[in-house]
Structures are given as C-alpha cells and as structure tokens.
C-alpha cells in the first residue's frame, strides 16, 4: 500500500517535472547584493560567478551565489578554478547553503552580452543542469537608479539548432526562428527571509529621499547615451560586414549555378551528338568537376547575435531617452514654478 503510494507520488513528480516550463526566477535579496558587490568592485572588468539554489516546479529559486576569481588563459589556472569551485561548494554545504547549481551570473557593460561565448557557456551548463539560468547585471546602468538585473535562458528551439550546428537560412525558416527567439527573458521575483525583512524595516533610514531617487533625477545622461550610440555604430559595422559575407555567398552561388547550367547544356548537346552516332551517352553529373562542389553557406548565428545586440541598444536608448523626457519636463515645470 505504502509502496504504491510512493511510486505514484514519484510518477506524479516525474510527469510534473517534464511538463512545467520555467516561469519565474526567484532571487533572494542576499544574492542581489552579492552579485552587485562583486560586479561593482571589478567594474569595468567583466566578472562571473555561480548561482546556487533550488528548482521547484516552474520556479527556480536562487538562494545563494559565489564569485569566480578572474579567469586567466592558462590551463593550470583553469584546473585551479575548478578546484576552487568544488571547494567553495563543499564549504557552503557545510553551513547548510543549498548545494545545487542553478546557473551563473555575469556582469556586462552597456548591455553588450549577446556573444557566442555566452551561448557556449550556456550549452556547457545545460549539459549538466536541466534547468539553468543566466543572470546579467549591468553596473553602468545602476548609476541611474535602475536595478539592471536580467534573467535569461536560451530558447529550446535555438538550443536544438545550436546542437546540430546548422544555421542555414533554410533550417531557420523551417523552424521559424528569428533573432528575437534566441534568448528568453524570465521574469524575476525577489524574496527575503522574514528576519532580513525585519532588520531592513528597522534599519531603513528616516530620510524621505534615498540615493536611488538622486540617481534617477540626475539630469545628465549624455555619457551613457554617447557610449550606447558608439556601440550601436560598431555593431552596425559588424552587421554590414556580415551582410557582405552573405552577398558574396549569393553571388558565388548564382555564378556557380550559371556555370552548372552551361556545363549541363554542353553535356546534353554532346550526348545528343553521341546518341545520333550510336554511342553510349555520358553521365549528366560529374562529381569531380569543381563547379559541382557545394559552396558552404555562412552561418547566420553571428548576424543573429549582432541583430539582437543592436535591438538591445535601441531598447536602451529608447528607455533612457524616455526617462530623460520626463526629467526635462519635470525640470521645466520646476523652473516655471
């Protein structure tokens, strides 16, 4: 009786696990503070760290994290990094911290995180952890009173394509995958233990204005916008390079097809002549001929990522410009008063 009950419970758990997609990432305030501390201390260098927590149904709880030392390109040091990671997790387990990797965090500068490396890291993590998430924090934006935290994951259809490493236009159209669908942003929830909440209530300063308000009402946004536009221009250059690659490819492709047609016509005429003369016709295909060698289609991954990046910059510019509008009108109203 008890046995069947457990089994059915397990079955239920198993079926549930398979069906519920990841909906919310729930982060503890402690983790936010830790991430911000680490990213800020090393800014503008980019840093990463590991997220620990629990996977509960459709919610991924991130309850702790620890930073990685800045990585250097050296095998020995890399091995040491792995040791460090194990050691840290062992230590944290001893003080009852959730000992379960759920992803990693990394800092970014002006939101320029959509790189092939990010995808590669993601695939690495995904191999070991079924459900993982990447949290991105942008220290440059927090100076404007924005909590620039983002939780991302790769979409399933993209991962499938990436595994087969097949980014031709045909495949992409088949899957109906556009650049918007590479990353999925997952909404973030914040939770704090009751104890922390009590302490914060007690410690909250009495002043009606906080640092966050000062930052938000700061009128000067031009440095941020300037950098953003600079990055945007760089990305546009990259994109046009990618476009040229494709144009080159299509030009080559059409030239090759024309050559093939010409060759085929010649061969057919020849065969016709041979038939009339009563000889065996030659085959209509010649694999040894260089004009039949298929030209590899360049991967669209890069251009997808760049497009994503550009869209991101545009969003940021829009957001900041929107904020500036309200600030300017506020300023105007103040001045008129």
């Amino acid at each position: 009786m008890a046995n069947t009950a457990t089994r059915s419970f397990l079955q239920v758990a198993a079926t549930e696990e398979a069906t519920t997609p990841l909906r919310v990432v729930q982060i503890e305030g402690l983790v936010i503070l830790k991430i911000i501390k680490h990213c800020k201390e090393f800014s503008p260098a980019l840093v990463t760290g590991q997220l620990l927590g629990l996977d509960v149904g459709s919610v991924l709880e991130v309850t702790n994290c620890f930073p990685f030392p800045i990585r250097e390109e050296d095998e020995e040091i890399e091995a040491e990094g792995a040791n460090y990671q194990l050691e840290m997790m062992r230590c944290l387990r001893e003080v009852n911290v959730d000992n379960n990797t759920v992803g990693w965090y990394q800092s970014t500068l002006f939101g320029s995180f959509q790189t092939v490396e990010l995808i590669e890291t993601f695939m690495n993590y995904q191999e070991n952890i079924r459900r993982c998430v990447c949290i991105i924090y942008d220290p440059s934006r927090s100076n404007q009173g924005v909590l620039a935290l983002k939780a991302l994951k790769l979409s399933d259809s993209f991962m499938e394509l990436y595994r087969s490493n097949n980014f031709t236009g045909e495949k992409l159209r088949e899957k109906n995958l556009s650049w918007v669908d590479i990353f999925e942003e997952i909404p973030i929830k914040v939770s704090n233990s009751a104890l922390v909440s009590a302490f914060m209530t007690e410690l909250e300063a009495d002043t009606p204005v906080t640092q966050c308000d000062y930052d938000r009402l700061q009128l000067s946004t031009s440095p941020f916008l300037e950098r953003n536009v600079e990055f945007l221009i760089e990305c546009m250059d990259d994109l046009s390079m990618e476009q040229q690659k494709f144009q080159f490819y299509y030009r080559n492709l059409s030239r090759q097809q024309a050559q093939q047609q010409a060759w085929l016509q010649k061969r057919r005429a020849e065969n016709m002549a041979r038939k009339n003369a009563g000889e065996e016709p030659l085959p209509e295909e010649d694999p040894s001929n260089p004009i039949f060698k298929p030209i590899p289609e360049p991967s669209r991954l890069d251009s997808f990522l760049i497009t994503n990046q550009i869209a991101n910059y545009c969003n940021q510019i829009n957001g900041v410009a929107g904020q500036s509008f309200s600030r300017l009108y506020l300023m105007k109203a103040l001045h008129e008063n």
Partner: peptide, 13 residues
C-alpha cells in the same frame, strides 16, 4: 538605497 528598499524590505516582490 541604490537598489531600493522596496526591493530589499518586503518578503516577496
């Protein structure tokens, strides 16, 4: 303060 107490204070945001 920079993050905002409205994120750090309540038990659930």
């Amino acid at each position: 303060e920079q993050i905002g107490f409205d994120v750090l204070k309540p038990t659930n945001v």
